[in-house]
Design a protein around this nucleic acid. Structure first.
Length: 287
DNA sequence: TGCAGTGTTGCTTC
DNA sequence: CGAAGCAACACTGC
C-alpha cells in the first residue's frame, strides 16, 4: 500500500508529532519484525534516545536518533504508524470512528515505542511484512545506494529521466515499479501515471517517443504531487498517523477500476498482468 | 467453500 | 546474467 505519497504523508505527520521526544522503551510481540540488531538488543539500545528528525527516502522512513544511529522502517503492504496516548492502545481501545481501522489497530500492533510524553508510536501491520532496523550512517548509505532519484526533487529533470530510460529494456510499467529507476512509485501510481501520460503499460520503453517521455515526466510529477496534497490513497487499508484516510483514491482514474468506464472516453477499464502485478488501463486513451 | 488477488521487495530458480 | 516465480502473512471478494 504505502507508496511515495503515503510515506511522505506519514513522514510529515511524524515530523510534527515525534521530533524532540525521547524513547523511554520499546515492545514487540513479533520479534521477526525487528530485523537488525536482534529484537532484544534493539529494544535495549533504543531506550533513552531522542528522535531528532524524521525523513523519507523512496518508501522508507528514517528516524534520526540522538546517538548518531538511524531507525529505518518499511511499511511494506499493510503497515501503519500510529500515534496515540499510551493508555488508549494498552486498553485495547483505540478511539476512531473508523471501525475497520480500530479493529486492525487493536489486533495488529506488533511493535511500539513509548515516548516521554506518555504517547506511544505504534507499528500496526496485519500481514507482518513491515520491519524496522537500527543502522549506522554508513549502513544507511549502503542501503540506499541502489535507489533511483526522488521524483519530486528538483534535480529529477526531464533529461535525467531520458538518460535513465535509455538504459532500460522491457515494459514501461515494469520499469516504473523498479526502485532503482525512480524511487517510490508502486502499483497504484504506476497505473495512474501511465494513464495520465497516455501510454499503455506494456509498451516497450525503447519504443517511447520524445514527446511520450515528456508526457511521462509531467505525469510523474503531477500525479505524485497531487497524491501528496490529498494525503495518499486509501482504497485498501492505508491510514495516516491519526488513523485518517487519504483521498487520492476518490480521483483515481484506472487503478482497481476494472470494468468501470474510462472518465474520458467511456471505454471499460481493462486489467492485465505485467511483471506479476495487475496493470489497469484504458485501451483508447493510452497508446 | 475455496481460491485468486492484494499496496512490496528480496531471495531462489531456471 | 537476467527474468520470472515465489515467499513472507492475513484478509477480502468472487
Amino acid at each position: 500500500m504505502p507508496e511515495l505519497p503515503e510515506v511522505e504523508t506519514i513522514k510529515n505527520d511524524l515530523k510534527e508529532k515525534v521530533v524532540g521526544k525521547t524513547i523511554t522503551g520499546g515492545w514487540t510481540d513479533w520479534p521477526k519484525m525487528i530485523k537488525q540488531p536482534p529484537a532484544e538488543q534493539f529494544l535495549g539500545e533504543i531506550k533513552g534516545l531522542k528522535i531528532t528528525d524524521v525523513r523519507r527516502r523512496a518508501k522508507n522512513l528514517i528516524f534520526y536518533l540522538s546517538n548518531e544511529l538511524f531507525m529505518l522502517a518499511h511499511l511494506k503492504m499493510t503497515g501503519h504508524f500510529l500515534i496515540a496516548p499510551a493508555n488508549l492502545l494498552k486498553d485495547n481501545n483505540w478511539q476512531s470512528d473508523d471501525q475497520y481501522l480500530s479493529d486492525r489497530v487493536n489486533q495488529f500492533i506488533h511493535f511500539a515505542l513509548y515516548l516521554d510524553t506518555g504517547e506511544v508510536l505504534a507499528f500496526s501491520d496485519m500481514r507482518k511484512f513491515g520491519w524496522v532496523k537500527l543502522l549506522t550512517e554508513k549502513e544507511l548509505d549502503e542501503t540506499f545506494a541502489c535507489l533511483g532519484p526522488e521524483p519530486l526533487d528538483k534535480d529529477f529533470t526531464l533529461e535525467k529521466l531520458k538518460e535513465i530510460l535509455s538504459k532500460k529494456r522491457g515494459a514501461i510499467k515494469k520499469i516504473l515499479l523498479e526502485q532503482d529507476t525512480i524511487a517510490g512509485i508502486g502499483n497504484i501510481y504506476g497505473d495512474e501515471i501511465l494513464y495520465k501520460a497516455g501510454i499503455l503499460p506494456f509498451r516497450e520503453v525503447q519504443s517511447l517517443s520524445t514527446e511520450e517521455i515528456e508526457n511521462l515526466y509531467k505525469a510523474i510529477k503531477e500525479v505524485l504531487a497531487t497524491a501528496v496534497k490529498l494525503r495518499g490513497t486509501s482504497t485498501s487499508d492505508y491510514r495516516d498517523t491519526s488513523g485518517k484516510k487519504g483521498i487520492y483514491g476518490d480521483i483515481r482514474k484506472v487503478y482497481r477500476r476494472t470494468g468501470e468506464l474510462c472518465p474520458e472516453c467511456a471505454m471499460p477499464v481493462e486489467r492485465q498482468k505485467i511483471a506479476g502485478r495487475s496493470a489497469h488501463f484504458c485501451r483508447v486513451c493510452q497508446k
